[in-house]
């Protein structure tokens, strides 16, 4: 009887269904327009980094560049004058250590909050969660004076300490939800297999949280990398500066050099986060998919 069913043209049905489901031309046009608006700054950045200062000054800022060569001069200039090398190293240190430690600490906290029975668990969670509720600016002044008093203002240690702490609450929220959905019988099985709490955490729960943890690492790394406010206030000496802070100082100090050079610096500064995203893309999508 199977042949009797095949008088239907499934390809045609599929085409018709796709046409029905897909939005009309109006929707596509609107989406394209919105994308253009969103892409405009990128266009500005891309045409500017390929112009020399003279070329930038003489023509329309939105005009296409004459060639690609000037980007090398621009890059060399900003690299030296803004001390980008040190700044990139600093930001990478803050980002890698801060985000890793924060996500790991958050994972331990989430494990405790979902797996270990202790009094007032919800209260403890709310306390940690409060860290994401209030605006971060609130911590700025008290932190500055405390850092000054105990002598860790303008130190790498101070910066790392701050980033480790500020990046914990959000991952706790996400990982607590994620771990809460992991099968409890799985860790009970491990316990019966002879695993201690620590062993359950390391060998059973952590490996199953890989995707959300990598996604959170990426988010927190990007946040630290892009942070300007705290890095300006807590770490403003040349050797300690983050890349964002360095760019800002550069733009202030060399106001005359022209946007093409600052923009080249900005482009260099954004490459690592883009690279990291591309590297972790698969986990990022999976991690968000589960926690959403």
């Amino acid at each position: 009887m199977a042949t009797a069913l095949d008088h239907l043209d499934y390809d045609a049905i599929e085409r018709r269904e796709r046409r029905r489901v897909r939005g009309g031309w109006g929707a596509v046009t609107l989406a394209a327009l919105v994308s253009l608006i969103w892409l405009a700054p990128f266009y500005y950045l891309l045409v500017s980094v390929f112009k020399s200062s003279a070329e930038y000054g003489s023509g329309n800022p939105l005009a296409l560049p004459h060639g690609f060569a000037p980007i090398l001069d621009n890059a060399a200039r900003v690299w030296v004058d803004a001390q980008l090398g040190v700044a990139l190293f600093n930001s990478a240190t803050y980002g890698l250590i801060g985000a890793s430690v924060a996500v790991l600490v958050a994972a331990m906290a989430a494990f405790g909050l979902t797996r270990i029975d202790f009094p007032r668990r919800t209260g403890w969670f709310m306390l940690i969660f409060a860290g994401t509720v209030f605006p971060f600016q609130m911590y700025l002044i008290p932190l500055f004076f405390t850092y000054q008093q105990i002598g860790i203002l303008n130190t790498r240690f101070g910066m790392i300490l701050f980033y480790c702490a500020i990046c914990v609450p959000f991952p706790v929220l996400v990982l607590r939800n994620f771990m809460g959905q992991l099968n409890r019988e799985m860790d009970e099985a491990a316990r019966m297999d002879g695993a201690s709490d620590w062993r359950v955490f390391v060998s059973i729960v952590l490996p199953n949280c890989k995707s959300p943890m990598l996604a959170l690492f990426l988010l927190q790394f990007t946040w630290i990398w892009n942070d300007l406010l705290f890095s300006t206030v807590l770490g403003n000496s040349p050797q300690i500066r983050s890349v964002m802070n360095a760019l800002q100082v550069f733009q202030g100090a060399y106001a005359s050099v022209g946007p093409n050079i600052s923009l080249t610096g900005a482009l260099i500064a954004s490459l690592p986060t883009v690279a990291l995203f591309l590297l972790l893309r698969r986990h990022f999508m999976a991690g968000l998919g589960v926690s959403a």
């Binding site: 799985m186 009970e188 099985a189 490996p207 199953n208």
Partner: peptide, 20 residues
């Protein structure tokens, strides 16, 4: 005594296999 010392083994409703 903790379960590992009781000499018992259990099969769970959800199988509870380690997915990774």
């Amino acid at each position: 005594e903790p379960s590992r010392e009781r000499g018992v083994a259990m099969v769970f409703q959800t199988y509870a296999l380690y997915p990774h």
